[in-house]
Simulated assay, not measured.
Amino acid sequence: MHHASIRTADIHRAIAFYEQLGFQVCERFTAGMTLACWMEGLGGRIELLQVPEPRPAADAFHDEGYTGYYHLSFDLTDTVDDLPRWVDALKKQFSHAASDSDQIAPLKILLEPIQQMIGDRVYEVTFIADADGLPLEFIRVMKI
């Protein structure tokens, strides 16, 4: 996959959010009249597009009847040893960043880390909301 595209109400706020997750802007451009960028991190690339007249995003995480793209998922197996500890550190990092910048809000957890059996593997799974409330999943294969 080349990239996943995310429409955002405020591209500067979205960039600040994804930078906290370790993404870096690798290209800035315009798409028609709107600001856009590619960011790389966590083994992938996202595209952020600023929406000139944004409406609130659908609640893909909590609305059981929602149809469409649900979330992006990032595999942290090779970079994180303990997902709950990683989430706790991320909460502190966002809290500290929020106190220093009006672009960053405290981290919103949609699902605290849990263990989930999928096929023959056990995973640690958590969901957070991005700057526009869109769900992001972080997953890690547990060592057997």
Rank of each mutant, 00 (worst) to 15 (best):
F127P: 06
I114P: 06
S101D: 04
R45P: 01
D120Q: 15
A89P: 02
H3C: 02
E137N: 06
H71A: 10
L83R: 02
I144C: 14
L107K: 03
G43D: 08
F29A: 02
E124R: 07
G22S: 05
F23G: 01
H62G: 12
K108G: 09
A131K: 03
I114K: 09
Q115I: 14
Q20I: 06
Q93N: 14
L21T: 03
G32H: 05
F127M: 07
A60Y: 06
D81Q: 14
W38V: 04
D88Y: 10
F138M: 05
I6N: 09
Y18G: 00
S101M: 04
E53D: 14
E64L: 14
D63P: 02
Y69A: 12
T34F: 11
M33R: 14
D78M: 10
L134Q: 10
S73C: 15
D100G: 15
A97P: 05
V80L: 06
I104E: 00
D75I: 00
V141Y: 03
I144R: 15
Q93V: 03
I139C: 13
Y123M: 11
M117N: 15
P135F: 09
F17L: 09
L76C: 04
Q93G: 09
I6Y: 13
A98V: 06
V141Q: 08
A4Q: 11
T126I: 01
M33S: 15
R121F: 14
D63C: 08
I128T: 08
L48D: 07
E124G: 07
S5F: 14
Q116C: 14
Q93L: 05
I6W: 10
G22Q: 03
D10M: 07
F23L: 00
G44P: 07
T8N: 08
Y123A: 09
C37R: 01
Y69T: 11
R28C: 11
R121I: 14
P113T: 01
H71E: 09
G41C: 02
E40V: 04
E47D: 02
P106W: 11
P106Q: 10
L110F: 05
S99M: 11
V25K: 06
D100R: 15
P84S: 04
Q20D: 08
E64W: 13
P52Q: 02
L72T: 10
P135S: 10
A89F: 02
P84Q: 03
A105Q: 15
F138L: 05
F23I: 03
T126K: 05
D102A: 15
L90P: 08
A89H: 09
L49Y: 12
F127C: 03
W86Y: 04
H3L: 00
V122G: 08
T126N: 05
K108P: 10
L42A: 07
F94T: 04
K92F: 02
G133E: 05
L111G: 11
R45T: 08
